[in-house]
Amino acid sequence: MRLKLIVALFAGGVAISSSAFAHEPSHTAMLSNTCNGCHGTDGASAGFNPTVGGTPQTYIIDQMKKFKSGERPSTIMGRLAKAYSDDEIAAIASYYSTHKYVLAKQETDPAKVARGKEIHKERCEKCHEDNGRSGDDGGTIAGQWKDYLKITFQEFREKKREMPKKMAAKIAGEGPLSDADIDALIDFYASQK
């Protein structure tokens, strides 16, 4: 955790410590505001697209670089990420990581949520701690929109996006998760408030 904080301070150049200053005009705000059109004001998505506000800076940097290189599949993100330097990506990541993470309010099926919870506890919690709210290097999955979670799981399962070995073992390894299991997991993460 401490390492992450240091990275955050260093990479951002300017440390934005409180939300009172978060919106002050700055180069960082200039780079980031324009992303809000698709990802929502302060990165809190209103639907479909992932919420990036309040997600870990290291994760945003990592994903932007993977979009840029094509390692992570995308529709438009790869095309856009190519326009930004490493410093600019770090600045954007630092900006979004200082905002509050807003969990999406959406409808879920209680039976699926219960089943998803079991699977999560058994296979996922170790890395995606706190019901998917935080994780070692993973993104914040609790409270993301179902459409996005569906697309993401699909990309992982179709091997369009590379899974860490540990994750591949839990999802597709011995006793692989079924479509219904994945559906249940999605509802569980979507149900987090």
């Binding site: 809000n36 059109g37 698709c38 004001t41 697309i151």
Partner: peptide
């Protein structure tokens, strides 16, 4: 336009039809 970035989709896409809905939802909410 920043060189060597941006551009159009490689092909017609069902996924882009989903993200398009995310576009309109988010921009109107903003």
């Amino acid at each position: 336009s920043v060189p060597n970035s941006g551009g159009v989709s490689p092909d017609l896409s069902e996924l882009e039809a989903v993200y398009a809905k995310g576009w309109i939802k988010n921009i109107l909410t903003e």
